[in-house]
């Protein structure tokens, strides 16, 4: 063997395809199809159990009962794709809402300012989470957000004790219930946010970097991805969306208290996991997450219609989360696996 043959043999130019082949099997083997199926099932079962369910107007109206927490699901999906988790979002909702109500009621600022303050508090909460996580890499996101979860809720209690704070202006209260035509404002807001986050995750370099970080954080950093910056931004987004949730929640309820939105983190994580966002990072799409929001929402709504107590929903959500996380870990039958 002389040097030329050895090198040439391994250094010949070869042609690589740069157009993706379409595979019918892999097209249908997507998690989203399963979700669409489940969503249909939820509709069918609900409409059998309750004749009122399939009324288009009430269906649209129903969305305003469950969409408030759904805003958080988008940044939570980003966080989970990055291999992190944020269990402080429920407390952030409570704190930003409480501050908003206090700024309006106790300090007498106009509601518009109070809303801005609410968003700012949410962003600050997210910033604190993000900075703690990137500055103290030895700590996991679990433990940091566990600490801030208690802290944020605690501050909300310090501000309002066990009081409720309401008396918002009428236009603000109308915001949570109002509709444009038949379509609730909250649904419109949700659709806008959904589009923005879907584009952000799937069509921008930012989204690509989020996937990179979740798939291999070290390689991403070595490849010049600003890992810390992106992590902080995503946590801030989570805080801001929690504040948006707080606004809609306060508007719909007419008041807010320090104990609102407890357990939201679980519902949101469940929606994301059910939507196919991997809990170990790097995988998942926004479409699945959006479908999961409606599956859980309409399930909740349907159960309400047939008078099943809301606590039962806890069991169902818990079970759904386990199923959603465990199913991909179980072995698929061979013929369904891509080579």
């Amino acid at each position: 063997m002389n040097n030329k043959s050895l090198a040439e043999e391994n250094y010949l130019p070869n042609n690589l395809a740069n157009k993706k082949e379409f595979s019918l099997k892999s097209f249908f083997l997507q998690w989203e199809w399963l979700l669409i199926l489940i969503l249909f099932l939820v509709f069918i079962i609900n409409s059998i159990l309750s004749p009122y369910f399939l009324d288009a107007n009430s269906l649209l109206g129903a969305t305003s009962t469950f969409l408030d927490k759904a805003f958080i699901v988008f940044p939570m999906a980003l966080i989970m794709i990055m291999r992190d988790i944020d269990i402080s979002v429920g407390s952030t909702v409570a704190l930003s809402g409480v501050v908003m109500a206090t700024v309006y009621n106790s300090f007498g600022f106009p509601m518009e300012i109070a809303i801005l303050v609410c968003l700012a508090v949410g962003a600050l909460c997210g910033l604190i989470n993000g900075l703690l996580i990137v500055k103290f890499k030895e700590l996991s996101a679990v433990i940091v957000t566990l600490g801030t979860m208690i802290l944020f809720r605690g501050i909300a209690y310090i501000i309002l004790e066990d009081q409720a704070s309401g008396n918002f202006p009428d236009w603000f209260n109308y915001f949570g219930w109002g509709t444009a035509g038949n379509i609730p404002f909250i649904l419109i807001a949700f659709i806008i946010v959904a589009i923005v986050f879907t584009l952000l995750l799937h069509k921008t370099t930012f989204g690509r970097n989020v996937y990179a970080i979740g798939s291999n954080p070290t390689a991403s950093r070595f490849s010049g991805v600003s890992v810390d910056k992106i992590r902080v931004i995503v946590f801030v987004l989570a805080g801001v969306m929690a504040a948006v949730t707080a606004i809609f929640l306060a508007s719909r309820m007419g008041s807010t208290r320090p104990n609102v939105a407890s357990g939201y983190e679980l519902e949101v994580i469940t929606m994301a996991a059910l939507g196919g966002i991997s809990t170990v990072g790097g995988k998942g799409r926004m479409l699945g997450t959006i479908l999961a929001v409606f599956i859980i929402g309409f399930l909740q709504y349907g159960l309400g219609l047939i008078n099943i107590p809301s606590q039962t929903l806890l069991i169902i959500i818990g079970a759904l989360l386990i199923l959603a996380v465990a199913t991909p870990k179980l072995k698929l039958p061979k013929f369904l696996l891509r080579k």
Binding site: I87, G263, L266, A273, L314, I315, G318, L321, V325
Partner: peptide, 11 residues
């Protein structure tokens, strides 16, 4: 662990 126990907490 965090996901499993969070889910069972609710159950």
């Amino acid at each position: 662990p965090i996901i499993a126990t969070l889910a069972l907490m609710n159950v």
